[in-house]
Amino acid sequence: MTGALRRYPVLIALCIAALFMVVPFLIVAVNAVKSPAEYSQNGPLSLPHGLYLDGLKDFWQRVDYSQKLVNSVLISGSVAILAAVLSVLNAYAIGIGRVRGRTWVLAFFVLANMLPQEALVYPIYYLSKQVGLYDTRLSVIIVFTVIQAAFGTYLLSSVLGRFPREIIEAARIDGANKWQVLWRIVVPVSRPTIGVLLVFFFIWTWNEFLLPLVMLISNDNQTVSVALGVLQGQRLMDATMTNAAALLGVLPAIVFFLVFQRTLTRGIAVGAVK
């Protein structure tokens, strides 16, 4: 019984800490449905007297939020798929093909993954202008496909390194070529890991800020993060607008979180502990 008495304070303390983590989201949600008059009169801590959605609607139209969502989905989705394909090809050669010098190739990908984007951003900006890709969504897709694939190669190589070789060799005896072995055997068997990669690549790309900020200057091409970040950086928004921006930025993240929660937490464990 004394055990139970001692246990509850720990639970309560953790619940309070968890609440503290979530409060910013709640307070944003509560205030986004207040009218500006109500906000300035009662401040941010009062409960709303009803649902006022005009602020959100105004903001949505003002920044053409639908377009930003389309851009973000298009960029993140393409990057997730392309980077996964690239990771699979690399990891197939390293993990299963065991090409000569694979340790060095892998080290190269790991280092590429560690490089700060600050050391790439200006040349990428400059080169993309030279080849006419500056301020296109394609440029961002290409760059992040490669950057994300660095991590994917690292993770998948170690997973494929433990792939049962008998299966592959049996298939080869049966006359399958390397290409067929890859698509008919290796990819289907590794589907869980590839799924984790797709989710991670999607969310990471969605959240990226520096490179899209530099590369996407026209309104029509900007992602959600960049559009909101730039607006905030210009310091032109009043409290109501900032609040609407915050809520609209938070919502997609919460949706991803609820949809992918299991994959995310499992994936982090896989990624960190090989």
């Binding site: 968890a18 983590m21 910013p24 307070i27 969310i203 800020f209 993060s225 993240a253």
Partner: peptide, 28 residues
């Protein structure tokens, strides 16, 4: 509880910045 602590991690950092600059604003 773990999910509550993990939630900020999925937020784009730019959005987290907006949330907090609104919370930390000097007036109101």
């Amino acid at each position: 509880l773990r999910a509550c602590f993990y939630l900020p991690q999925v937020l784009p950092i730019a959005v987290a910045g907006i949330v907090w600059s609104w919370i930390l604003a000097p007036d109101n």
